[in-house]
């Protein structure tokens, strides 16, 4: 699914990265806790979160998320968006809650980037 299709599906606003809407996204990771993103998210996945502070951009840069999708209609503050511009990470915002967002994306074929935690070795995302 492309970012453009994701934006359409979720009626999302594109806040940063309008020129990257052709990026193909296959996996997603949803979290409100940034350590979880660091522990489990895979490169290329889209980060879905209810947080809006600049952390989310730094984390996305660290794990190489393809984009950030902010839920619950939140619009990140200017400093977050400025950092996203600087680090070249697209940011979208949807009014849907995390549950609905996950459900719609999952129904459209996006899968979780970790399906199952089998043991300590499978937790290492690297």
């Amino acid at each position: 699914m492309t970012l453009r299709e994701i934006a359409e599906l979720l009626d999302a606003k594109i806040l940063v990265g309008g020129d990257h809407l052709g990026i193909e996204v296959k996996t997603a990771f949803s979290a409100d806790l940034m350590s979880d993103v660091l522990a489990f998210a895979k490169p290329g996945s889209i980060m879905i979160t209810g947080l809006t502070n600049p952390q989310i951009v730094r984390i996305a840069s660290i794990v190489d998320n393809s984009a950030i999708l902010v839920v619950r209609g939140k619009i990140p503050p200017r400093e977050t968006l400025a950092l996203a511009e600087e680090l070249d990470i697209p940011v979208l915002s949807t009014k849907y809650i995390l549950f609905e967002t996950s459900g719609r994306l999952y129904a459209s074929g996006i899968v979780g980037c970790v399906r199952k935690i089998e043991g300590p070795e499978s937790i290492v995302p690297l």
């Binding site: 940034m34 350590s35 660091l38 522990a39 502070n53 300590p120 290492v124 690297l126």
Partner: peptide
């Protein structure tokens, strides 16, 4: 409330 403090920090560090 800021999304920290999940108890994953040192665990993540060790894993890396």
């Amino acid at each position: 409330a800021m999304g920290f403090g999940a108890g994953m920090g040192l665990f993540n560090i060790k894993n890396c």
